[in-house]
Design a protein around this nucleic acid. Structure first.
Lengths: 243, 243
DNA sequence: GAATTCCGTGACAGGATCGTGACAGTCAGC
DNA sequence: GCTGACTGTCACGATCCTGTCACGGAATTC
């Protein structure tokens, strides 16, 4: 289960930036333009975390936060405040109103995501779950779920362990024997080519939507999780191009 | 397996703050006041991660980072930069010099610890990354990839093993028999001239972009990986002739 | 300069390797 | 006990790899 983040921000540019980065990090994102809209969305489907702009038209961020804290249903909802100033006085006031953390604009996407994770980990340990990512692949260890882009991918236990191992060591090539040891276990008595079959099933599941294949076959050696080569034609000398 | 973190920071207050939080998070912490002291400590007992202040008396943080990157022993050492400014230009310059991440003061302890964990997790597998280089050739053993300059070169298994052997012993000439033993294996029953064919295929793949040939043929003896002789010298260059 | 040895080049056929689909045994849940 | 999912194995075919050969040019020796 991925965590739902609700962004409350009136500037479209900032809203898109936030949404883009949070989605890339594996969160489910919703957005609202002002406090009123936010309240409606929270009532309908409460998010797991709120990112709240300090200055909002109508109901201000700080006021919205205070209201949420008063209602039992939303009192525990984690809130990250977003402000343009670095002034310490604001910082303190923000934390007093019950924000869990504070990000100042301009912010780096990485920092923001790190803070979101940190806050979620504190508030909902189960939700922040260790998240492995590679390209548009996301693997949530705690929730035991895998996503390719926005599509959830259903994997069998063996496929899941195999993908997990590959995602924990991206780019690295593993021989069939190594994979048997590490994914199947040292005492597994299985044919080497069983790995091929499982790789195939994993590929089929991951690429079911027509996405590019992220599993690279290294002939004579093994498999690796890797970015596919962009098919470029016509530049280098022909003849060696194939392969 | 506790990771060792070396803090390089001249302000005692910040140093203590960092040390306190990292120790609380379970890391082994050492500290240095300036670049010189840091270099000494790194030489004595290399840490697993470096937290580096941007501004330092004497050797600046950015300069220290650059120096570390140049030495093979410390080239893979993860570095987190610490700066007072949020300016994007600094940020980019920091990442360009080879910092793995970037934290701006003032920072939250939780964020810092989260970043340290993240960088360590990312860097661990890469630290073992065996990388052979010769001239503009790079061979990544773990990823099982070969690059000539920026172009990736696709090699068959035998070509790959042959190139690997030559890159592990550059400048050295191997006879066909030696190569058969070491690349094909002691029990290979193959014609000597098979080596020629594979050398040829290797050359074609490596020079497909029109680059100079790095495989030197020593008539009557064998092959070696070597820099090509600069063309057209009036006198005979004696040095490399013998051997 | 001629004979000889050595190496580069292209082609080719057999073989190794991998993808693919199918199948049966096992196990858990109903 | 039945059903369905999961998994290990196998056979087949396509592709890629690789060892070998013949030829000709280049270097070396006499």
């Amino acid at each position: 289960m991925t965590a739902r983040v609700l962004i409350v921000e009136d500037e479209p540019a900032v809203r898109r930036l936030l949404a883009y980065n949070l989605e890339a990090a594996g969160f489910e994102v919703a957005a609202a333009r002002d406090g009123e809209e936010a309240l409606l969305q929270i009532e309908e489907l409460p998010p797991d975390l709120l990112i709240l702009d300090w200055m909002l038209p109508g109901l201000s961020g700080i006021e919205l936060c205070r209201r949420l804290r008063r209602r039992p249903a939303t009192a525990g909802l984690p809130v990250i405040m977003l402000t343009a100033r670095v002034e310490e006085s604001d910082r303190l006031r923000g934390l007093e109103t019950g924000a869990d953390d504070y990000v100042t604009k301009p912010f780096s996407p990485a920092e923001l995501v790190a803070r979101v994770r940190a806050v979620l980990r504190r508030a909902r340990p189960a939700m922040a779950g260790e998240l492995l990512t590679f390209a548009d692949l996301r693997l949530d260890l705690l929730a035991h779920r895998v996503y390719r882009g926005h599509r959830e991918v259903a994997l069998s236990p063996t496929e899941f362990r195999l993908l997990r191992h590959l995602m924990e060591n991206p780019h690295r090539v593993f021989g069939r024997g190594q994979l048997l040891d590490r994914v199947w276990g040292l005492d597994a008595e299985v044919e080497l080519r069983t790995v091929d079959a499982t790789i195939r099933r994993l590929r089929r599941a991951l690429n079911a939507g027509g996405e590019p294949d992220l599993v690279r076959t290294v002939r004579g050696t093994g498999y690796a999780l890797d970015l596919p080569e962009p098919e470029a034609a016509g530049f280098s000398a022909p003849g060696s191009a194939g392969r």
